[in-house]
Nucleic acid binder design. Structure first.
Lengths: 110, 110
DNA sequence: AAAGTACTTTCCATACTGGAAAGTGGTTGT
DNA sequence: ACAACCACTTTCCAGTATGGAAAGTACTTT
């Protein structure tokens, strides 16, 4: 019934939302897509890892180190629950916010 | 493109969402519905008033003072924009979050 | 050897939050 | 009249979180 504070913080919400859409995302891609600094992404990425929501993989591309982020199952579940909670909070407004399957747009989206 | 921080804070999001559904709501009703303390509702209500999002009306019911909150037009617009921004942020996930008209539920809601 | 890449950590200064408690202005009870 | 209560409002406080800047780490490239 609460809004998971790990996910709710704007920067982390954006990170998680982005990861929810992708299999795995590179550090630099996430950083540039969201327009955050290295230090912020590093710190928030670690926060999500500590919460068990994101898996951080380190590897190489050629000889250059790279870092990838990926949502864990738990992270995906937490995100889903978060979105459901948001809906419950926001929906009394009469704006009926619903989730639907991919590729099946509802009529008259905003 | 940003998530309005005035609305994003969990307590205020709940207040605004509740007010978006009602014409006007009593202080005690909001406080008890959200389960917050007097001081928190008073402070966050003022914050929303200072932002121009909520109108605070004081009056009497019999001889007892009462306070009502009501979203201003600006507050409603800010809330609508906030929800739209959330959708943009969350939607890359493949969970397609849309707004629709009242009373026209989408197929297969979660 | 110097410079660069890809982050990570530390430092810092600034918010923001909520709970507790005290305060305000008026009303009810004895 | 005086204490107690109601409906909030304000003040006090203490803990948490954030982000930017800058320094640090561990290579690799020039």
């Amino acid at each position: 019934m609460e809004l998971d504070p790990v996910i709710h913080a704007p920067t982390r919400l954006q990170i998680v939302s982005l990861l929810a859409a992708a299999e795995e995302a590179e550090f630099a891609f996430v950083r540039d897509t969201l327009g955050v600094s290295d230090s912020v992404l590093s710190k928030q990425g670690s926060a999500l890892e500590n919460a068990g929501y994101v898996h951080v993989r380190k590897g190489y591309v050629g000889k250059r180190p790279k870092t990838w982020f990926k949502l864990t199952d738990r992270g995906r579940a937490a995100f889903t629950a978060y979105v459901a909670n948001l809906q419950r909070i926001v929906s009394p407004s009469g704006l009926n916010v619903v989730q639907e399957e991919r590729g099946q747009p509802a009529g008259r989206p905003l």
